[in-house]
């Protein structure tokens, strides 16, 4: 396993290994509550808080938690942070809390968060775990915002509730309904995959002169 630099730990989750767009983790909230930009932001922030908080605690107590019960301990820590987020949202922004409903409680079973604890926070120093959690949380928020903007603009003709088009715009209602979540995610993954493939093609063409068969990564190695 290659050692990583702190900067790599931070940037990795934002783009190259974006939890939603590349690892396809945390899809439940990404599909369910991205029907408006405001909901996406609130969900992104709540998940960010839970992820950073639990990574910090898991990394701090990694020596104390016995190996046999580590998953239960992680879930306990995550669930505590989720309950706190739930109560704080209900007290501070009751309207958004009402919109998000049961999906806040479901952050507990977001595999993106548990995955970062088991794969990273439980094995690294606190600083690295924090960087990784912040990076992954920002990456998650970017993905949520992409979906939320796409869906609200097409499905409701507005951003953050502010109408963008005139009265003649007929909202594409399917995009704020559940099927719209799947369609949007599909379109975004398509664009993402196309962009990545094109990038790797360009890299290969630069390395090899024209007319030379490009070897695959395994052959080149």
């Amino acid at each position: 396993m290659r050692a990583t630099t702190p900067a790599e730990d931070f940037v990795r989750g934002i783009w190259k290994e974006n939890p939603v767009l590349v690892q396809l983790l945390g899809l439940c909230p990404a599909l369910a509550v991205t029907n408006t930009v405001a909901n996406s932001i609130a969900m992104g922030l709540a998940t960010f808080f839970v992820l950073v908080g639990s990574s910090l605690l898991v990394s701090t107590f990694k020596k104390v938690i016995p190996h046999e019960v580590r998953i239960s301990a992680y879930i306990l820590i995550i669930a505590t942070f989720v309950t706190i987020a739930d109560l704080v949202l209900a007290a501070v922004v009751p309207l958004i809390h009402k919109e998000l409903g049961a999906f806040i409680a479901l952050i507990v079973v977001n595999c993106m968060i548990l995955g970062r604890q088991e794969a990273f926070a439980s094995k690294r120093p606190i600083g690295r775990a924090l960087l990784d959690a912040v990076g992954t949380g920002v990456g998650f928020m970017i993905a949520m915002l992409m979906m939320g903007t796409f869906r609200e603009v097409l499905g409701n003709g507005s951003i953050l509730g502010v109408p963008l088009f005139g009265d003649n715009f007929e909202p594409w209602v399917i995009f704020i309904l559940p099927p719209g979540g799947f369609l949007t995610l599909g379109f975004i993954l398509l664009a993402f995959g196309w962009w990545q493939e094109r990038k790797s093609d360009t890299a290969r063409i630069r390395q090899w002169p024209h007319g030379v068969a490009t070897p695959s990564r395994e052959e080149a190695a």
């Binding site: 190259k16 290994e17 590349v22 995955g115 794969a119 990273f120």
Partner: peptide
């Protein structure tokens, strides 16, 4: 040949 997005061992390590 298509390249799959590279995921560092950290992610796979869970399994």
């Amino acid at each position: 040949m298509k390249e799959l997005p590279q995921v560092s061992p950290d992610v796979l390590e869970t399994a």
